[in-house]
């Protein structure tokens, strides 16, 4: 089975983000980057499928030169080869624009399965996988925790996936390959990166494709105009009064402010 995993490089979770002078993006100069966590789960799922059923795992990522570091990490964790779609204006493209790049680069590979994380930790759009499926004319399922191949005939396979709905509800969904699945965090245990993996990754193939050569439109349908700091910062509210008063105030807050009741 040929599995492609689309991964994204995002600022490290603890990165201190500062708005740049244009007010439209963050300063990238001193940022440290990491693999988007849901994508790491997608990669893990792909590696486990390969370990069970054999085949090939290819990672694809789009972005500037620095993305190659994250690609290396994916190869170190066990992917067989990689495609780097070099694109320096990623932030200016909307979800559709990025999905077009990925779809154009993925099409010639004709994978049996395309996995990607449910959403990214930076923009949090949560759309790329679904749009790529639409562009490639493939069926898709989202919020997937586990993937199982239930029947296989030649290169065609029937896939059974476990979806996470809301509030502790789940659902099984079946679809034929080739298909796109967007993977929810937490379905598997991630493997940690190892020294041996990094050393072995040095010899694996990374094919570079330039965004401009893919012949897709860069004009966005949605434009990010400005970024700002949100107003409220987290702080502890101490509720005073008698036990009854404090309890009543707390229930009110939980219901209407935190909305968790």
């Amino acid at each position: 089975m040929k599995i492609i995993v689309a991964i994204k490089q995002v600022p490290e979770r603890d990165a201190q983000v500062h708005i740049d002078s244009s007010g439209q993006w963050i300063e990238e100069a001193n940022l440290q980057y990491a693999m988007n966590e849901p994508d790491a789960y997608a990669l893990e799922e792909a590696l486990q499928l390969k370990e069970k059923a054999g085949g090939e795992v290819i990672v694809i990522s789009t972005g500037p030169e620095r993305v190659s570091q994250t690609i290396r990490e994916a190869l170190a964790k066990g992917a067989d080869r990689a495609i780097h779609v070099v694109c320096d204006d990623l932030a200016a493209r909307d979800a559709l624009g990025v999905a077009r790049l990925l779809a154009a680069a993925i099409q010639p590979e004709s994978p049996d399965l395309l996995l990607t994380g449910l959403q990214s930790e930076d923009l949090g759009l949560g759309q790329t996988g679904v749009i790529v499926a639409e562009l490639l004319g493939l069926p898709h399922a989202s919020l997937i925790l586990q993937v199982e191949i239930i029947a296989k005939e030649g290169s065609k396979a029937q896939i059974k996936a476990r979806r996470e709905l809301e509030e502790g509800w789940f659902q099984s969904i079946e679809l034929p390959s080739p298909a796109v699945l967007t993977i929810q965090s937490g379905g598997n245990k991630l493997r940690y990166a190892t020294l041996m993996g990094i050393k072995r990754a040095k010899t694996k193939e990374v094919r570079t494709v330039h965004a401009a050569d893919l012949g897709v439109s860069a004009a966005p349908a949605v434009a990010l105009e400005a970024i700002t700091l949100p107003k409220k910062q987290k702080s502890t509210q101490i509720l005073n009064g008698s036990a009854e008063e404090a309890a009543a105030a707390l229930v009110e807050k939980l219901k209407f402010e935190a909305r968790v009741l």
Binding site: E121, D122, Q127, E225, I227, T228, P230
Partner: peptide, 29 residues
């Protein structure tokens, strides 16, 4: 997606970077 505020324009606000930033979006197409 996941808009938390709509201002005149219309300008749509959604959260970025796990809620550490807000982004203002405008429909361009």
């Amino acid at each position: 997606g996941d808009v938390i505020e709509i201002a005149d324009g219309p300008v749509f606000t959604r959260q970025l970077m796990q809620g550490r930033l807000n982004g203002s979006y405008r429909h361009a197409g």
